[in-house]
Design a protein around this nucleic acid. Structure first.
Lengths: 245, 245
DNA sequence: TACGTCTATTTGTCATGACATATCCTTGAC
DNA sequence: GTCAAGGATATGTCATGACAAATAGACGTA
């Protein structure tokens, strides 16, 4: 019980609360903290690690937000029962696939700069008619088609090349240009696929598809991207963790 | 700019950071803080309200988590562009509908206590074969059917009556019994509806439906409920806000 | 003009200390 | 034996103080 933690690196740029959170998370994944088990109280833990209580609290809170821990006032902190799943985070489909050991590939179906139509302009909060980059891509995992991704990006990104989009995910490209994406609002629904969508995705005509509409904002609050995606319902699902605070 | 805030009530049981967060939120909704506008720096704000900086930070952070604000080190805090939507929270469909002024109603299709099948037992983290309450309900909004809700609850809730479930939402019932729900993991997908589902939902045969599988845990980390729901894709969608921290 | 440097501003991280409050368990009274 | 009161324990809230680091703008130099 006592050797749950390795030493902390106070010279590292990685914040202390983050180092601690990761160690607790690993302890949970590794079975050292089985589901339902109780953590020591935060004051003792902080003491043992030579940390202040706020720092310790922040580490624990981070895992509560991830849905791994549950706290109850006057009682303590416990590990949540049940299998640990991976929640959706602010990543792209491309990154998700790569992280799961898949081999993502992309085929650019459409790549054009057009004047922003009304709906697009409203979602991106740019002037109607201002130049935007309109993309339509087919995303595959291995040999299997997985999703049709349609996106619009504001003027500052109209120089993204078709070739670069074929190789690296859109989020990766944006990040490498120094864009700090912070918030995304998604709307997840379902509908029958169009004939063309089903053809692209190698599904039978009229198959049910999972739809996702998303606006992503950067660290200045400006819209960076608006997208309408359709996924093969037979191969894809969204996972979400909700926490009440 | 200066009269953004009402006075704070230090005797109220509502935490100060929460009172502040709500006031900022109202200022955003009311247009006093338009999209893209910058907040004063947190030290000044804290001073003006007679608060400490950590408390002010916590208020702001709460709104960042909700996707309303965006912060950037060395720069400041800004209001996110774009329409403000309501993210899904840890509420039931019943509560959601009621909050939107709809008139939710429920028809209990099935209400039985059965020995937990393997899959259910695993999701609820109870012994296989232990008694569980198995529910199947049709949820309507006004006159329109909206979803078929199938749920399993562990032994301690097997005494929930069919009548009570017809009147109040399941989450409401659980809360009134002192259950503090804290974490839920959802998996959102899509598929074609079965013949019976489509009949219940008054959809054409084979219509696409939005599916949701969910496990809810209470503040002790124990599973409280496992559910498999199907929603009419033509009338329902999930909204999710993701924040990168 | 163009470029790099310095500085002011702002958020990020961390420590210490205090009191409030929910919960559980023990103890004691009836 | 049952119920109520009280204490122990843990998390929740809040204040104060300090330093680190990223950013943007001003300034000076080539």
């Amino acid at each position: 019980m006592d050797d749950l933690f390795d030493d902390l690196d106070r010279s590292s740029p990685v914040p202390l609360y983050f180092q601690v959170a990761r160690q607790i998370e690993q302890a949970i994944e590794g079975g050292k903290l089985p589901p339902g088990s109780r953590l020591e109280n935060e004051i003792t833990l902080a003491d043992r690690l030579g940390l202040s209580r706020p720092t310790m609290r922040r580490a624990i809170q981070q895992l509560v937000d991830k849905g791994l821990l549950v706290r109850k006032r006057g009682v303590g902190t416990q590990v949540v029962h049940g299998q640990v799943t991976r929640p959706v985070e602010l990543t792209s489909l491309h990154d998700d696939l790569a992280a799961h050991g898949q081999r993502p590939s992309t085929q650019v179906l459409l790549h054009e700069v057009v004047p922003a139509p009304g709906e697009v302009a409203a979602s991106l909060a740019v002037a109607e008619g201002s130049p935007v980059l309109h993309l339509r891509r087919l995303r595959c995992s291995g040999d299997e088609p997985l999703a049709v991704l349609e996106n619009w990006l504001p003027e500052q990104f109209t120089d993204l090349t078709e070739a670069s989009l074929g190789e690296r995910g859109m989020y990766q490209l944006l990040r490498s240009r120094g864009v700090g994406m912070r918030v995304a609002r998604q709307r997840i629904g379902a509908r029958r696929g169009t004939t063309e969508e089903c053809r692209l995705l190698q599904e039978n005509r009229g198959s049910p598809l999972l739809t996702m509409e998303r606006t992503t904002h950067d660290d200045s609050g400006r819209a960076v991207e608006w997208g309408r995606h359709v996924y093969r319902a037979s191969r894809y699902a969204f996972e979400v963790t909700l926490v009440d605070r």
